[in-house]
């Protein structure tokens, strides 16, 4: 037995609609090759730099860091050929997402506090792992809405 979905032209059109939507969502969630790796190295370097205990670094690093992040975001955005839509979220989903961000913020501060007691470089590596792990999960979720 052959089902309707396998035989008629309307079903073919629906399949094509789904294929094109999936391709677009995938493109909008994609990051340029090396995007995460560059950020991971930059995070490790940024925190690792505090190892020097330099007053100049303390002043210059946050400024350079903000400029780097702005450039990185622009680069990611420019590399895409489909800009993702803003998903419609329920109140429950807003609360859940806010809880995730607060949790990540707390975890990052904990890592920085504890890791820096051992070594700022260790703190940097742990922060890089945390942020790239979180970024990878967020990208996966965007590709599989």
């Amino acid at each position: 037995m052959v089902s309707n979905m396998e035989t008629n032209p309307e079903a073919d059109q629906l399949r094509e609609v789904n294929r094109l939507r999936a391709a677009t969502i995938s493109e909008s969630a994609a990051t340029p090759r090396g995007g995460f790796a560059i950020m991971a190295v930059a995070i490790a370097a940024f925190f690792g730099g505090y190892q020097w205990h330099s007053r100049v670094y303390d002043v210059v690093a946050p400024i350079v860091w903000c400029a780097f992040v702005a450039g990185w975001v622009l680069w990611l955005r420019h590399g895409k050929r489909a800009i993702p839509g803003r998903p419609a979220r329920t109140a429950h989903e807003w609360r859940r997402d806010a809880a995730v961000w607060i949790g990540l913020f707390a975890a990052a501060n904990g890592v920085a506090l504890l890791g820096s007691r051992v070594s700022w470089l260790l703190a940097g590596v742990l922060m890089a792992a945390l942020s790239t792990g979180g970024g990878a999960v967020a990208a996966w979720r965007a590709r599989h809405p």
Binding site: E16, N18, R21, T24, E27, R86
Partner: peptide
């Protein structure tokens, strides 16, 4: 028409879609 249906399917899956991406996929 299938090409316009495909284009609308892509446009509704994102906020903005670039011309070359539409051309390649369609």
């Amino acid at each position: 028409p299938p090409k316009r249906l495909g284009a609308m399917a892509m446009l509704t899956a994102a906020r903005w879609v670039e011309f070359s991406f539409l051309r390649e996929n369609l």
